[in-house]
Design a protein around this nucleic acid. Structure first.
Lengths: 341, 341
DNA sequence: AACGTTACCGGAAACGTTTTCAAAATTTAT
DNA sequence: ATAAATTTTGAAAACGTTTCCGGTAACGTT
């Protein structure tokens, strides 16, 4: 029992192929009565239009790409999930691609678009700062950059959309909280460091700014660099502790890493927050269920995902123009930070 | 500068369309010299074949579906990632679909296959026990079921492949360890409970069997049911604790849940493992970095992913038949369990 | 009654490939 | 050298849709 095609349906129903086509695309030019009839037959014979043929004909696919940077960060998993939902709802299909830590993101994006004939692309994370916008110039495929280090270039014609948080500002908020409200003076930092304008470095800037504002000298001994993994942060924290600097707090620029760092602290028999306060970043669920639960700066994940896909569809349907959206973060006070005595 | 098609390349190169087609599909029937020439031109003009057209013509796509059950379990994220890699390597594209907790998995699978014209499908998790194999009967699309509750039906013609662990046995191992090696007698259990033959229930059986083997009576007060989330396990553990049964250990049938449960214990000021030992299941990375790190039964995630995709490609290329593979689990001793005094 | 509109429908030409079949070119055998 | 076998190529027919371009039928208007 091979799959039926539109011709079969046409034959069975007694109408022409074009009419059947019109009903599946619910084109207005068809009488209600015949629409009914044809739909009934389609239903009965369980006919599913061949997508390749459609796409070929329309020379466009119903594929939306999601390019996610970095391995295994639950921060993204959640977003991917809700994005997939929305994509499916709209009748599109999601093609997901992971991009490893050290590959050129913009290149991967362009490649993906061309190869998979994408209708749109959302990039989750990654380094998109100093890329050459001219690479995007031929593409009519809309791109939205989410949770990246992009910064709005004032006058340039927008070739993409973005939805981001202000990393520097958010980091400032976190560290300022540590200094000003909780009275810490010796604050370590564990961040990530690929590129001068990477997210990790942006957050690092916020850290320094907060120190300065609170009249604390920055000491580069307090800085350790890691990657977005438990393990690397665990090691980084151990290095920091080994230096015996007497830090009373540490700002870790991702929750995953904050957990790794906390584990290192706890494993040495130190107490959180009694001996050291730990401040995370991201707002993943894990952080809440660590013990002690981790104080963090929450990025509005759901909103970021929703907004991104909303913008993307606006673009695809040509109802809207490119936009740059900045979302607010929220400091969530939990158990891992406390006032210094 | 619109995209070139095969005709353009043919024209430019001076060969016929069919010859160009042969070189892109590296068909043997073409002289090395002309292959070279044509490849050079393809390269130069950056020609990418139109997938829709190919698929249409070959009446098959290069899409491989991955249907993952349940929301947000890092246990799966990792597998998805490595699966995606392998799929991409083979020149296929992954279409990922999440299936929520309470939908019919087999139905979703069949739907997905038809709609997206999949070349193969791997299902991660889900309930596939008592499904009607006849639903698969028309499909030539190979399916491999991974990490599901499927059990090999002896004589039935295989309509699918599977790669699983023996849940009951693995759970037995965990609980037996608690009883026999560590001397616990009052052991709570938190598991999941959709359906009588769900994974959670299989593990529950292993729990009961271990108790029996160690001459411990099963008391149904010791059982709490939850879902695969931190939150639900957190609550379940609190319910269990509220009953004041004097449990000295608890077996939680997923690491995510074990963490939620641990958090509940710790939040009450109880110590792990001094007051209560916690045994997890799955072997996700987070369990290692929780404090105390959680003793668990590790499923070989990477191997499961690799094996699944290997089988799938064997099937797609018709080099192999359906297989049912059972992988071994490993009990990883960490800090959360200790001998009873 | 004749006309112009409008609503609905059908025919057929694309879309960009792969593949079959046969022809042309080349090699090998005689 | 010629024939036979082999390798390499080209022409053209699909694959299953969408859509343009007309055509018919039904309707209202004068």
């Amino acid at each position: 029992m091979k799959n039926l095609n539109i011709k079969d349906i046409a034959k069975i129903s007694g109408y022409a192929v074009s009419t059947v086509s019109r009903v599946i695309n619910n084109h207005p030019d068809v009488k209600d009565e015949t629409r009914e009839k044809i739909l009934k037959i389609i239903e009965k014979y369980n006919y599913i239009p061949n997508n390749s043929a459609r796409n070929l004909k329309r020379s466009e696919s119903k594929n939306i790409g999601v390019l996610v940077k970095g391995i295994f960060n639950p921060f993204f998993s959640k977003m991917v999930q809700s994005i997939e939902e929305r994509i499916a709802e709209e009748g599109y299909t999601m093609v997901l691609h992971y991009n490893d830590e050290n590959s050129d993101d913009i290149e991967a994006a362009v490649e993906l678009i061309k190869e998979k004939k994408l209708r749109g692309l959302v990039c989750l994370g990654g380094n998109f700062d100093e890329f050459d916008e001219s690479q995007l110039i031929g593409l009519k495929t809309p791109i939205v950059l989410t949770s990246t280090n992009i910064v709005e270039k004032s006058k340039s014609k927008k070739k993409f959309s973005s939805v981001i948080i202000e990393n520097e500002k958010a980091a400032f908020k976190a560290v300022d909280y540590l200094c000003r409200l909780l009275g810490h003076k010796k604050i370590g930092i564990i961040t990530t460091g690929a590129g001068d304008r990477s997210i990790g470095q942006l957050r690092f800037k916020g850290y320094k700014k907060a120190l300065k504002q609170n009249n604390i000298d920055y000491n580069e001994e307090f800085l350790e660099i890691g990657e977005y993994t438990f393990e690397s942060a665990y090691k980084a924290m151990n290095r920091l502790l080994d230096k015996d600097l007497g830090v009373t707090a540490v700002f870790v620029t991702s929750d995953i890493m904050a957990i790794g760092a906390s584990k290192a602290i706890l494993s040495r028999g130190l107490k959180i927050p009694d001996n050291i306060s730990v401040m995370g970043f991201d707002g993943i669920e894990y952080a809440k269920y660590f013990h002690p639960s981790i104080t963090t700066v929450k990025q509005p994940q759901e909103e970021m995902g929703n907004k991104s896909i909303e913008i993307l569809f606006g673009l695809i349907k040509r109802e809207k123009k490119h936009q740059h959206i900045i979302l607010e973060t929220e400091l969530i006070e939990r158990e891992s930070c406390k006032k210094i005595l």
